[in-house]
Structure formats: C-alpha cells, structure tokens
Design a protein around this nucleic acid. Structure first.
Lengths: 116, 116
DNA sequence: AGTAGTGTGTACTACATACTACACATTCAA
DNA sequence: TTGAATGTGTAGTATGTAGTACACACTACT
C-alpha cells in the first residue's frame, strides 16, 4: 500500500463513524489546504514533509514511524541516533538486515530488560 | 569536526605524501568543479549529495558512513533497512539510544555469530 | 429551494538543493 | 622566468520540495 491511498482508507474508515473526519476538516486540523491533502491522498503529489506527516498521524491516531515509512522517509530523531555513532549503528543495521523479525524482537526485549 | 574542514585535513594529509591529492585533482576524479570542492572544504556551502560524498570517500579511502554522518546524513541503504520494518527498527534504535557502545558491539557480534 | 459542506482541477510560488562556468591572483617547477 | 598548476571569488542555473490560493461542480440537509 502506498502512502496516499493508505491515508484515504484510514481516514474514510474513521469518517464512516465520525463526520469530523471529512478531508476538509482533517486538512483544517492538520493545517494544510484541502486541495493539497486531496492530492496527497490520491498520490498526485509526493508525500508531505515529516512535520506534516506527524500532524496527520496524530489526527488519525496512526503510528508516525509507519506513515513515514510508507512515505519512504526515516524519522529525523532516528537518523540522529545513527549519525551520533555512525560506523557502529551502520554495521548493526546491515547485520540485522537479514535477521528475522522474531530475533530482532528478542534483542529489543533483551535490551529493554537490561541484559547487558 | 565538521564535514568540510575534516575533508580538508584528510586530503592535505594525503597531499603531503602524494601530489595527486591537490584539490583540483581530487575534484577532477570525483567529478565536481574545483571551485565547488573548495567551497565544500571551507564550509562555504553545505555538504554535497550522498552520491558525491561516496565518491569523495572512495577517493580519500574514508568510511562513507562516517563522512555521511559528518554531513548530517544517513546512507540511503540504511534508511531502506529501517523503512522495510518500520515500527520494529524504530523501537530498536530508540532502545539502543542510551546503550553504551560496548554493549551495542556485543549485539553486533552476537548477531554476526548467529546467536539467534 | 437554498445554503453549507464536500472533494478536486488549475495555476502559482517560495525556498532549498546541488551543482556549473569562468575569471582571477598566487605559487611551483623546469 | 615563464608556463603549468593551484586555490578561490562571483555569478548563474536546473531541479526538487513543500506547499498556497481560488474556482468549480456535486451532495446533503433543513
């Protein structure tokens, strides 16, 4: 699923039970022109900036990282984490590229539980 | 150290033992105008594109990830790795943010050695 | 029947990114 | 001592990014 059509599906699902999720009202809350949001949802224009995506995510209660990913972007704060320890995190990510989800998840849990 | 001045230091160190590392000759090999490389090294203009940074890194035998980091950028291939499994890798990176280098390195080694 | 709200087409615009092209003064080497 | 090579200042350009502004046709109430 691409960014725009995904947004449209999510928004229309909400609209079906809440009239305040019309394109125009979402656009107003997110502070962009309705015509622009319309074009975004149809993929007529590329996905908007990270900041705008975050406001859309907040309004639709979607995961910002997922929306950013659909937009082909990586959150600026994640980029900073990598940049601060560049060669180390570059190696780590390339190692993890082929590691299955469940194994990565195990690492996430181990780190969270302080197994280091 | 910022991107430009770092480049200058690295290049001049090489120049001191190899005359082919003049600004003009490096610029020629890297396929940018000498005036542009001059401005990059002095920080008069922002760092160049990822592709140009990679060519500079290759010519100066520097780690591309480190140069990209100094330029405030994250390699496109690393971004793709995160994007493909967005919420998972986002969580992982935020967990690892405060984990000390040696612990991250342990994880890198464990993954490499297939401890999963 | 009218008006409020809906989505969308067209036309612009401001700013950033990523450079090139050329001229110039200085320094180095034969 | 002159020709080649060096680094740099100024000016300009092409493309991408991230939108705004307005008009229009349609629909949904009341």
């Amino acid at each position: 699923m691409t960014f725009g059509p995904y947004l449209r599906v999510v928004r229309e699902r909400r609209l079906s039970t809440d009239r305040s999720y019309s394109l125009r009202q979402v656009a107003h809350r997110v502070r962009v022109e309705p015509a622009y949001l319309s074009k975004i949802e149809r993929g007529v224009v590329p996905p908007p900036s990270e900041e705008t995506i975050r406001r859309i995510a907040a309004d639709l209660e979607e995961d910002p990282d997922v929306l950013l990913a659909l937009a082909g972007k990586v959150s600026r704060d994640l980029q900073e984490i990598i940049i601060r320890r560049a060669p180390l995190f570059a190696d780590l990510l390339r190692q993890l590229k082929k590691v299955p989800d469940h194994a990565v998840l195990r690492i996430v849990r181990e780190v969270r539980d302080g197994v280091w």
